[in-house]
Each structure stands twice: as C-alpha cells, then as structure tokens.
C-alpha cells in the first residue's frame, strides 16, 4: 500500500521531466554531440574529440569578443544599478504620481528588442536623428556607423535606456516594502538622509538588488538583438559581443562544431559568473566575509 502511494508521485513528476527533457536537456545534449564532431552534411560527420574546444579557447577573435563582453557587462552593472536605485529613491511613494511614474519608467520594457535597435538607429543618425543631429550640430562629429567610440556610446546609451527601468522597478518594490516605522525610527535617532539610505534602505533592498544584479549581468552578457540591429557588431568588430560572434560562426559560416563548443564554453562562463555574484551578494552586509 505504502509502496504504491510512493510510486504514485512519479506520475505527477514525469510530465515535467518530459517537458524539461525535450525543451532543455535534449537540445543541450545535441549541442554537446555537435561540439565533438566535424559536420559536413546530414550524414557526413567525423568525430574530432576536444578539437573544437581547443580551437575556441585559442581563438583570438573569441578572446576579443569576451573582453568586449566583460567590459560591456561591467559598464552595464556600474551604471544601471546605481542609476536605478537613484531613480527609485526619487519616485513618489504614493498617490497618482506613483502610478504615473511607474508607467513612464516601465515604457522601455514594453518595446520589442529589435524595435529598440531600430528606434536608436533613427535617433542617433547624424543627419536626421534627434540626438545624433543635435550632437553633430554642436560641432562634435558623432557617427556610430563610423567610429567605434560612437558605436559604444550609442550601444551603452541604448542599453541603459532599455534596462535601467527593470532595476528601478525592483529597487522601487524593495523600497516600498520597508515599513514606515524604520524611517520614523531614523528620524527619532536624528539620522541624516545619507545614513537612512546607507543603514536602512540599502540593506533592506539587498534581496531585490541581488536579483537585479544577477538579471542584468545575465541579460547583458547574452545581449544580441539590440546591438545586432543597431551596429551589426561594427564598425569593424568593435561591438561584436559573444552572442553576435557565436551567431556569425554558426549561421554565417555554418561551422556547427566550433559554434557548439563555443556555446558550451559560453554557457559555463555565464554559470560561473552568476554563481560568483550570488555567493558574494549573499554575504555582503550580513557580517560574513565574502
């Protein structure tokens, strides 16, 4: 009787297993399979062992893309997290102003990613773009299709504009969850605005900020659509991030084996960084040494 009851649980779990297997594990295993073979056609493949992994690890273009990617993600975190907190702090806490500012802030999140790329292409055009023409009008030459620096500035601006709202929403939710009594207590203690932020608001936002950092890191590390539409990875390779390079390799050159090996490495890097962030963020402010 007991035995049967125990086994019954499997009927509940198996459907989920099947869905996860078909949607995640099987494709992943296919990628592992590809990464170990040289593929010429549907029935022409040769086992090459770890060849593609060696290639990938020694590919200087991949190294450059990884450096760019790390630079990009670091800038994203350094700008978006503080900016998001700052905006959340300035937003009204209640009344119609709160609803209005929430809607305004959330707008960029509602736009499809490729549309965002298109919007910024037009916005930054040196001849007719609102910002691009304005900057050029001031006598500063600015063209994201020609100068790597301008391309980076444009991609960063777009990224910050697109995704800071997510940080704002998370930080705002965290701030709203702090009981009013904390602020009263701080006022009674005679704490300054900075102390209130440093010792009440920031520690109380730790949970949501951990999520914000993880999400922003993962998303920015995997970014594809917006820079692909905006710069296509150029000029030159100056904005070729990892996923753009990966797609060039897999789709552009149809090098399925190397692309598969690259994918696996890419996946492991993201996993490693997320684990590191998570470990550090869990301990910050709790008194434990990170």
């Amino acid at each position: 009787m007991n035995k049967w009851e125990d086994n019954k649980a499997w009927f509940m779990v198996i459907p989920v297993f099947l869905v996860v297997a078909v949607s995640a594990i099987l494709p992943l295993m296919t990628v592992v399979n590809y990464s170990l073979q040289d593929i010429f056609g549907p029935d022409q493949r040769v086992f090459v062992g770890l060849e593609w992994y060696k290639d990938a690890l020694t590919d200087s273009r991949l190294h450059d893309a990884l450096k760019r990617q790390l630079m990009f993600s670091s800038l994203v975190l350094l700008i978006e997290i503080p900016l998001g907190i700052l905006i959340a702090l300035m937003m009204p806490k209640k009344g119609w102003g709160a609803s209005l500012s929430l809607v305004l802030v959330a707008l960029p999140l509602l736009i499809p990613w490729n549309v965002i790329g298109t919007i910024w292409i037009i916005f930054m055009r040196p001849d007719i773009g609102l910002l691009g023409a304005a900057v050029n009008g001031l006598g500063i030459p600015f063209d994201h299709t020609a100068s790597p620096f301008a391309a980076w500035v444009t991609v960063m601006l777009m990224e910050v504009w697109h995704w800071t709202p997510l940080v704002v929403l998370l930080a705002y939710a965290g701030l709203q969850a702090i009981p009013e009594a904390y602020f009263q207590a701080a006022r009674i203690d005679g704490a300054s605005a900075w102390s209130t932020f440093r010792y009440i608001q920031l520690p109380k936002m730790r949970g949501v900020l951990t999520i914000a950092v993880l999400l922003r890191f993962m998303d920015s590390f995997l970014i594809y659509a917006e820079p692909f539409v905006l710069t296509g990875g150029g000029p030159g390779n100056s904005t070729t991030f990892l996923s753009i390079y990966l797609v060039k390799l897999a789709v552009g050159q149809f090098d399925l084996g190397p692309a598969a090996a690259f994918s696996i490495i890419y996946f492991l890097i993201v996993l490693l960084f997320c684990w590191l962030f998570y470990q550090v963020l869990l301990k910050v402010g709790t008194g434990d040494k990170p």
């Binding site: 009981p179 009594a181 904390y182 009263q184 207590a185 009674i188 203690d189 005679g190 704490a191 102390s195 010792y199 009440i200 920031l202 520690p203 109380k204 402010g285 709790t286 008194g287």
Partner: peptide
C-alpha cells in the same frame, strides 16, 4: 524622544552593539 515599535526595528546591517550605540554616536 525615543520610541519602540510593534515591528522589530533595528538597523539590518549593524551588529547589536552598533545598533544600540547608534543614537549615542549620532549625538
């Protein structure tokens, strides 16, 4: 004035010692 609330209000990132000391440090 000093006040104690229904909710347990302490500075979350400070030790108990620093929490208790905080009004004196501000003064």
């Amino acid at each position: 004035v000093a006040m104690v609330y229904q909710q347990f209000i302490n500075y979350p990132s400070m030790t108990v010692y620093k929490n208790i000391a905080s009004p004196l440090r501000l003064a």
